[in-house]
Design a binder for these strands. Structure first.
Lengths: 197, 197
DNA sequence: CTCCGTACCAAACGTTTGTTATGTACCCTA
DNA sequence: TAGGGTACATAACAAACGTTTGGTACGGAG
């Protein structure tokens, strides 16, 4: 029997179990019983904290976001282009753990396409991320590392697109896209930005 | 009762029904009964042609690939960079129909992460696509539209990444990423390639 | 010490799932 | 025109699903 904790801690425990099930068995394998087994509890515990499965999934989505944002990130030693590079490096599946995280997010993409609230959350999340990337781009422009020819907002979308597109390809072909290759491609992409007239 | 057709035609009918269910209800709503209802038939018909649901989904994946490749594509009037542009335009969710197709493919991404055969099929599909993109890049290099500084294979991965990453963002935020914005971003990306030293 | 609400387990609920079994109409061949 | 295989529909199947119910243990308030 698991130790008793306070309400929020318990919900977080559940969300983390959801995360693990998602990473190991995909969205198809995400059942209340699988989550309960994963945390060594009963389905009664789950329904005690979440009225419906959809509520559980939505909360798990929030927790996944927090967990993703709170993970140990590489820090940029300089603002501007260096910071943009680091921000993109942080989303690439360079390690097995990072790959598992990426897989979870792809699952959430699919789930979000069928759930309005999840979809909206995903949209907001993208918006925030692009905002952070845009700040890096603006700093890079101020430092004359990038020209102001292309609007910073556009560069941010482009960078986000490149990174996530690379994530998907790397998930399906890790042999052809190992960590060093991903990093090399990122450098290519960044140099494409710096030489833009 | 639907008209009787030959074996292969029938299987294709089923696969198309799978496609429609997938586009309308996502992978979560993909059940044998939903597919049967969609094509006005019974589950008995489905099991007559497919031993298991997994077989059905895998076949639907094949058909989805064929259908995607066979759709009316814009044709490039010139090889090289223009052909690359067209190839990327063809995967962007610029119309509602194209957006539905993209949603189906995101669903297949998730499904593939939990099915080895689907995963391999997805990998092969990516490889073929990158090959076609690479051919465009090589032609562009031959025409001196692009330098040979970056290997064509790398540019192909990069272009595929940009396109699919943009697809995902556009699916979640169609307001912020309407067709013309997507096309503008594509031009930015391409000009980043052309000015690369 | 008693009482009560929270926290949970164990079991069962009705529904939906993929799959299988049975029945029937049709086409082809002889 | 008789017979047999193909092509389905219908209905049943066990398993798994999300959800509900009933009960037990436990901590804190009085």
């Amino acid at each position: 029997m698991p130790a008793r904790g306070d309400h929020d801690t318990r919900r977080a425990d559940v969300a983390e179990a959801v995360w693990r099930v998602l990473a190991n068995h995909g969205f198809d394998g995400l059942t209340l019983r699988a989550v309960a087994t994963e945390m060594g509890a009963s389905t009664g515990l789950l329904t005690h904290y979440f009225a419906t499965k959809r509520d559980l999934v939505r909360y798990a989505h929030e927790i996944a976001a927090e967990r993703t944002d709170a993970r140990p990130l590489r820090q940029a030693d300089e603002p501007g282009l260096a910071a943009l590079r680091v921000a993109l490096v942080n989303v690439l599946p360079l390690t097995p753990e990072a790959a598992a995280m990426s897989r979870v997010w792809v699952s959430f993409w699919d789930a979000a396409l069928g759930d309005d609230i999840l979809s909206e959350a995903q949209r907001t999340r993208y918006e925030n991320w692009r905002g952070r990337l845009q700040a890096c781009v603006e700093a890079a422009q101020a430092r004359r590392e990038l020209t102001r020819e292309t609007p910073a907002a556009d560069v941010a979308v482009e960078a986000a697109a490149f990174a996530h597109g690379l994530v998907v390809q790397a998930l399906f072909d890790p042999v052809r896209l190992p960590a060093d290759r991903q990093l090399g491609l990122l450098e290519n992409f960044l140099s494409g930005l710096t030489n833009r007239r």
